[in-house]
Design a protein around this nucleic acid. Structure first.
Lengths: 352, 352
DNA sequence: GATTGACATGCAACCGGTTGCACACACAAG
DNA sequence: CTTGTGTGTGCAACCGGTTGCATGTCAATC
């Protein structure tokens, strides 16, 4: 069997990717000069740089990262691995990461671990040799495994709090504090929390925050779990919510919150008249109807910062124990209202 | 300023990662022999192969992918460029693409063009040298530009119909036919279409399909445009919709549809009692409340197929003029109902 | 007018593999 | 003893950049 060398038709006009050699020849300069126009323009006469760049522009030239990687050891590529691309929390984060990387001339290799630690390990192993660093979002791996991978390449974690590893956390604490204060003000006394994936850092953090805050306000709390943490999982918890006697629901995220909304409506429970619902993430709260009261989590910012930290690390710029905690805040929209008991008992009549 | 050569500490005791040269020297053979032990073992004497592999094993050697990529021109990477990662149409597509690529041992470089042709060009130029092929989703570039890029690397388009270029189309035609038939059956006679980005193939296709189908049913059609094609853009069209006298709205996509829903509710218009609304994409119709009647578009499949076609192309397996058209269908949920006039006038009473 | 830098560019080696071609050697047939 | 046919290896060029060092130019300085 013949193994053909796969290569596209040569020479720029007829469909090849242009190289420094092409530009050099056309301009009658050496390859080094072309190279330097991109890497060390300060060494060249300004008009030379300009000449080269102009030519590169018209030829559609861009430096070949693979070649550059071979000689410098820097690939100009970072990996970003998320548990589920389609979970609406991640797209804004991914986009911000991509844009941030692009600004520093890096590309992003994207991986979806399907919430599966084994798959996540596979991807990391596969990506590692060809990237300068990795961002792992909501990793499902154990601390030890993470530390091991971090010895091979710089790693920045998102929403995973491992001491001594650089990490960026979307901290829902403030938001949930505000949410519970908001509910307390509306007269609610009985809460339900519909939690997410038990292993996840974010769920753990939310549970703790809510438990603390509700105690401050003397409220009762029923903790449930959406399993899985999806629309349907949220919907399935509705009977338990109603049985608990809660008048307000805090959901693990916006997706679960929408599931709860749907389930409530099917049970003839009106929102917010009979039940208040608060989501978390603020990721499609503003693009669906009814507008969901939710906790805004700055997920895009997390992506941006993670990349920026990683690139600092890659460039040897960074130091110390990095732990970025991004605070959150409540956004009140249309799914929270006075507790039914408070209304029945009399006053507010807010509005009509 | 000193520019340090960045290189990670590695396997061998002296801190360097072993190369074929090291193995070759230790074994007293040539570098080619070592290389061939890994790539064409059939050309070597079995005991030679074994000797090399054993040595590689003890030295912890693994072939350097970057170097291999440079000399073979095969990187094991494909690029995927989308106009907006955060547009909910794309995440399922991206995920399917990533998974499909992974199955064939390819990685995905992701790019976000921000709906901007110039940015899209930049990304393509930057990615091209380091990928084996590209998938361009909903490209905003002109046909000529696309053709030009396709001469450098295999390119597969999604939702862009350029003759003689491989393309995968999520064809909304069938779905819109069904939608209009559905509305006709419910007694609607006046439709409004809230269109999306004027340049987009998908909008163009939808406009044509709707115009044809409504004619078949003798309905009137008012065409509006959500500008931009977002939640707010959709919401802003509501007054025009109401002024048009339409009793049913077809929206460019689910996001716009939700904007319309919100706007209608703010105007005291009930859905579906006073107005029916149909979205398109089926991307979060099932994860929000109320469940949106919509057209299901198989976007994940589009991603999967595009990658599969691209990898066939890359491997030289594929042929001919590829044009995959993925049909769509209507999914009736809770936002469509009998036309108000029909209800007032009497008969149907279909159901209750 | 010769000396000295500073500056801009070229030369050539190198990064770590792959591969077309040549060569050496073995063995079989003429 | 040639000639022919394989077979297993080595040589060297190449992929597309980067970079240490050398060279050439020109203006400022002595």
């Amino acid at each position: 069997m013949l193994r053909l060398r796969y290569r596209f038709p040569m020479a720029t006009p007829d469909g090849t990717v242009p190289t420094i050699s092409v530009i050099a020849k056309e301009l009658g300069v050496s390859r080094s000069t072309v190279s330097r126009a991109f890497t060390r323009p300060d060494l060249l006469r300004p008009e030379t740089v300009e000449k080269v760049l102009a030519k590169a522009q018209t030829l559609g030239y861009a430096p070949n990262k693979v070649a550059r990687a071979l000689s410098t050891g820097q690939n100009g590529v970072i990996a970003l691995i998320v548990p589920d691309i389609a979970n609406p929390f991640f797209p804004p984060l991914i986009r911000a990461a991509q844009v941030g990387a692009d600004h520093q001339d890096f590309c992003v290799l994207l991986g979806d671990s399907a919430e599966n630690p084994a798959q996540e390990s596979r991807l990391i192993t596969r990506f590692t040799p060809q990237v300068d660093g990795l961002v792992l979002a909501a990793s499902r791996l154990e601390d030890a495994a993470l530390a091991e991978y971090a010895r091979r390449r710089p790693v920045v974690l998102i929403n995973r709090d491992v001491p001594r590893m650089p990490r960026v956390l979307t901290d829902s604490h403030t938001g949930f504090m505000q949410a519970i204060a908001h509910l307390a003000e509306l007269g609610h006394e009985h809460l339900a929390y519909v939690g997410g994936p038990p292993g996840a850092w974010s769920d753990h953090q939310r549970r703790r925050g809510i438990a603390a805050a509700r105690a401050d306000h003397g409220m009762t709390l029923t903790t449930l779990q959406a399993d899985p943490a999806t629309y349907d999982g949220g919907k399935a918890t509705v009977e338990a919510i109603l049985a608990s006697g809660a008048t307000a629901v805090l959901a693990y995220d916006d997706v679960v919150a929408h599931g709860v909304l749907a389930g409530l409506t099917e049970h003839g429970v009106r929102v917010p008249e009979d039940m208040s619902v608060i989501g978390c993430d603020d990721v499609f709260a503003a693009t669906t109807y009814p507008p969901l009261t939710t906790i805004s989590l700055r997920c895009a910012e997390a992506g941006k910062i993670a990349v920026s930290v990683l690139l600092d690390l890659v460039a040897g710029r960074s130091v110390g124990d990095v732990r970025h905690s991004l605070d959150s805040h409540l956004i009140v929209r249309a799914t929270t209202g006075p507790a039914p008991r408070a209304r029945r008992q009399g006053p507010p009549a807010q509005g009509s």
